[in-house]
């Protein structure tokens, strides 16, 4: 047997695990309904419901709530998709696929990166599809803004998927993950400026929003979608992008460390 060919490599395992995520998704396309449909309904009902009763302080006149809520909904699409991908890790564990990956001669970091990369691509796909609705909200896009938005979306998608993995690695039931999702991930989104601006919130909420990394992701999306009306209240584009990149790096590092320290069989 030729053992020389078994150099473990790093990119090949990463790529193969990422590709698997995409192929699996293509075989269960109804997942797209859950990941896109729910945010779309949220956006339309909440956006229309608040309607004229909401007046964004930063953009006097001009912006409807449907428009204000649009970047937040984009973030929600990414959050939902990354949660679905994260749940796939728990399923891999439960259904047994993960055990054979864990006994293969690949580093835990490449396992994490492969799964996160696959999840990121899927989230990006969903986010980009949701951009198609933008004109309905009266948001005009051009090729430059679409390209920059796709870039921003991929940064946020990567960070959220990696965060999900850091949380899910030691979880062996989807029920357990749902509890964490409602306690951690949903508040993360609610307090990101997605639903309401920081300026009108009570001081302690404003403080929480400042330290919420997703605030900067949503801000970056606002810069991409409404550059003219973004206003002085938002963190600058450079800060928003910087924090989002840092968020992603820290999340994937945490996921890799947790995966590296956990035995193949959960206690």
């Amino acid at each position: 047997m030729k053992r020389t060919s078994l150099s473990s490599g790093f990119l090949l395992p990463v790529a193969t695990l990422a590709v698997r995520e995409l192929v699996r998704f293509c075989r269960q396309r109804n997942r797209i309904v859950g990941a896109l449909g729910t945010p779309l309904v949220f956006w339309f009902l909440i956006g229309s419901g608040f309607g004229a009763s909401f007046q964004p302080p930063s953009a006097p006149g001009g912006m409807s709530y449907l428009q204000y809520f649009f970047p937040g909904t984009l973030a929600l699409v990414l959050l939902f998709t990354s949660i679905f991908s994260t749940i796939s890790l728990i399923e891999d564990r439960r259904e047994g696929f993960l055990q054979s990956v864990l006994v293969a001669p690949v580093s835990r970091t490449s396992i994490v990166l492969g799964k996160v990369l696959g999840g990121t691509i899927l989230a990006l796909l969903h986010g980009s599809l949701f951009l198609v609705v933008a004109p309905v909200a009266g948001i005009s896009l051009n090729i430059v803004s679409v390209i920059s938005l796709v870039g921003i979306l991929s940064l946020i998608a990567f960070a959220l998927t990696a965060l999900g993995f850091a949380i899910a690695w030691r979880t062996d039931s989807t029920q357990g993950f749902h509890a964490i999702m409602n306690l951690v991930l949903m508040p993360l989104w609610l307090l990101s400026g997605a639903v309401f601006p920081a300026s009108g919130a009570s001081p302690w909420l404003r403080w929480a929003m400042t330290f919420n990394p997703l605030t900067y992701g949503v801000a970056a999306l606002r810069w991409g979608l409404h550059p003219a009306t973004a206003g002085s209240e938002l963190p600058s584009l450079a800060l928003s992008l910087g924090v989002t990149v840092l968020f992603g790096v820290l999340a994937v590092w945490a996921a890799a460390v947790i995966a590296g320290r956990t035995a193949g069989v959960l206690p």
């Binding site: 060919s5 473990s8 698997r20 055990q99 054979s100 990956v101 006994v103 001669p105």
Partner: peptide, 30 residues
């Protein structure tokens, strides 16, 4: 690198074909 492992519980991805499962396995081993 030197062991092959066959688990009691399934380790195959049921949503993939036989060939795809083996392909991913091969990639994991370089």
């Amino acid at each position: 690198r030197r062991i092959g492992v066959v688990f009691q519980s399934p380790s195959l991805d049921r949503k993939l074909t036989v060939m795809e499962n083996l392909g991913h396995q091969g990639h994991l081993y370089g």
